[in-house]
Design a protein around this nucleic acid. Structure first.
Length: 569
RNA sequence: CGGUGAUUAGCGCAGCUUGGUAGCGCACUUGGUUUGGGUCCAAGGGGUCGCAAGUUCGAAUCUUGCAUCACCGACCA
């Protein structure tokens, strides 16, 4: 490709709307352009990278024996009615009507469509197991699109689905997919980790996420500093303290705490250690037969944070987690938020393991402007349940039993689930088994965020000059940068000959034939991140040499023109 | 969904307080100059100042409404 025929579209200045480095560089290097919130056009350079990622994913899926299909992005709402997700999925699901007023949705994922397909196509256990994948645009009406293509509303995803008669077989395919994912991220040249994940609303038995480690990531990952344990913080268990709870030494005392509303207020007003305080959160429970929603109290140590996923998993808590309204709080606790405490509270109380370990602690008194000190479980408040409710924090013992927790940020680029029979049951997806009986299939699903990987790769591979592509996904393998080609016939001839030769060899080469000063060209190619530059100039032509510059290492060396092809062996 | 801020040329911004129909840098066009790290000089093109209404002789500027974009929050005990 010649730059004179190519939409380079690099920018000198950073558009004000771009926050993270990958978004800034994707705009500056001319990879994408914003159309509307969360919607992006892929320009030629960006599309080249996207296709590279896509092809690596495709090759590894095929190697793992997964069949490629392509399903519609627009799906009948009926299908979603059938699976029950039309209501469950919420406002992220974009709904629309066709000219006949028939309801449709834009597919945020394709479990319904694929399960329906397989239900129609398969009839015998002999056709199992079967795995299918597609690489396709998804649409999720994100509450807050941000960071460019990292969290766009429309994005490219590889989604795969496997179908099995037995859990055992699913587990095997799951492992195979896990291995395929490792190969994919290895080939992409990314620094990634597989981590234990929550199965979320999808349910199922096992789930792993694949995260690219980067400070701009939106997820917290908990690692052990000793073993290879890694889990999403949503999932990581906070172990119960091992030491015995201390006996009460203080008497229960009410203290006036005017205008004290938050834990931080309590700590500074009373000048106490935050670890001697607890906070009480009121949330909605499961609706009972009378159609009433009971309120449940969740109790945490002051310095700990509620893990919503863990809370939602509790039998008596409604999902999604909903906090009690101010009116409900007043009814239940006789006070406003900020003064709630477990003592004397006449509702279900679930206490986090760490909070349950405290003695002589401080909490709200269920009376505005009042707190209690010297509070002790059992003596002052006995009807409690204990559960793991909090996020792990750095320094906690690792749930694997070895080492301490370290927390790092990650960008979720892959997620695999053992789904079980949820969709197969809903969509009536079954085959005849060996005994001639109908048997519902069990499923796995496996996603990779193809467009997100492009952004994640940049987060991990850049410097102050621009992008440093891992060579597997670079838009071009090499750029020819001629010095003053307009004035030097020799330079022009040499550059043209090299271009011809590289093209013949099938190497992706960008020939910078613009009439620009050297500095402009160098800056553009460094921004775009082409791994190799071939610099052709009068200076080295007498010796029949070109200069080779490596974008990743910054190394420069001279190479005989006749030896250029040796760079690509 | 809540809060905050923004919207003036392709991009980055100034002008608004104190109303008199727009300016800077980059980019772009033309000519010259320069040519191994974003040359320099000169001339030029491009904006119904997000949209709508209002106040006024007169609105980018004041008022109101709307739209879009961005950031923060959605943990409050």
């Amino acid at each position: 490709m010649r730059t004179s025929q190519y939409l380079l579209s690099t920018l000198k200045e950073t558009p004000a709307s771009a926050e993270v480095i990958s978004h800034q560089l994707m705009l500056r290097a001319g990879l994408v352009r914003n159309l509307a919130s969360g919607l992006y056009t892929w320009l030629p350079t960006g599309l080249r990278v996207l296709k590279k990622v896509e092809n690596i994913v495709r090759e590894e899926m095929q190697r793992a024996g997964v069949n490629e299909v392509l399903m519609p992005m627009v799906q009948p709402a009926d299908l979603w009615e059938e699976s029950g997700r039309l209501n469950d999925y919420g406002p992220e699901l974009l709904r629309l009507n066709d000219r006949h007023k028939r309801p449709f949705v834009l597919g945020p994922t394709h479990e319904e469509v694929i399960t329906k397909l397989v239900a129609n196509e398969l009839s015998s256990y002999k056709q199992l197991p079967l795995s299918l994948f597609q690489i396709q645009t998804k649409f999720r009406d994100e509450i807050r699109p941000r960071f460019g293509v990292m969290r766009g509303r429309e994005f490219l995803m590889k989604d795969a689905y496997s179908f099995h008669l037995e859990q055992e077989c699913l587990a095997k395919t799951y492992q195979k997919m896990f291995d395929a994912y490792c190969r994919i991220f290895d080939r992409l040249g990314l620094n990634y980790r597989s981590v234990l994940a929550d199965t979320g609303s999808i349910g199922g038995d096992a789930s792993h996420e694949f995260h690219v480690l980067a400070d701009s990531g939106e997820d917290d990952i908990a690692f052990s500093d000793v073993s290879n344990f890694a889990a999403n913080v949503e999932k990581a268990e906070a172990l119960a303290p091992t030491n015995e709870r201390k006996e009460p030494t203080q008497t229960l005392t009410k203290i006036a705490t005017p205008h004290v509303k938050s834990i931080n207020d309590v700590v500074s007003f009373l000048n106490v250690d935050i670890k001697t305080t607890i906070k009480t959160l009121l949330v909605c429970g499961i609706e009972n037969e009378q159609g009433e929603t009971p309120i449940v109290a969740l109790v945490l140590r002051g310095d700990h944070q509620l893990n919503e996923v863990k809370a939602e998993h509790l039998a008596q808590i409604s999902s999604p987690l909903t906090f009690a309204t101010d009116e409900q709080v007043l009814t239940v606790a006789n006070c406003n938020v900020g003064s709630i405490g477990p003592v004397g509270l006449n509702i279900d109380i679930v206490v986090d393991r760490s909070a349950a370990q405290l003695s002589d602690f401080i909490c709200g008194a269920n009376e505005n402007g009042q707190h209690l000190s010297g509070v002790n479980w059992q003596r002052d408040c006995s009807a409690i349940k204990i559960a793991d409710l909090r996020n792990v924090v750095a320094g906690d013992p690792s749930p694997c039993g070895q080492g301490k927790i370290v927390i790092k940020r990650g960008i979720e680029v892959g997620h695999i689930f053992q789904l079980g029979t949820k969709y197969a049951e809903a969509m009536n997806c079954s085959v005849l088994n060996e005994g001639g009986r109908n048997q519902t299939l069990t499923m796995g699903c496996y996603g990779i965020g193809v467009s997100r990987i492009v952004a994640a790769a940049i987060e991990q591979n850049h410097d102050k000059y621009g992008i440093k592509w891992p060579s597997a996904i670079a838009p071009f393998q090499v750029a020819i940068v001629p010095m003053n080609m307009a004035k030097s016939a020799r330079v022009k001839e040499t550059a043209e000959a090299l271009y011809e030769q590289l093209n013949q060899a099938g190497i992706e080469v960008l020939f910078d034939d613009r009439k620009e000063r050297p500095g402009v060209m160098f800056a553009d190619h460094e921004l775009i991140g082409t791994p190799l530059l071939l610099i052709v100039g009068e200076r080295n032509l007498d010796a029949q040499q070109v200069e080779v510059k490596n974008r990743l290492t910054g190394e420069k060396s001279l190479l005989a023109i006749s030896e250029v092809m040796s760079l690509f062996n």
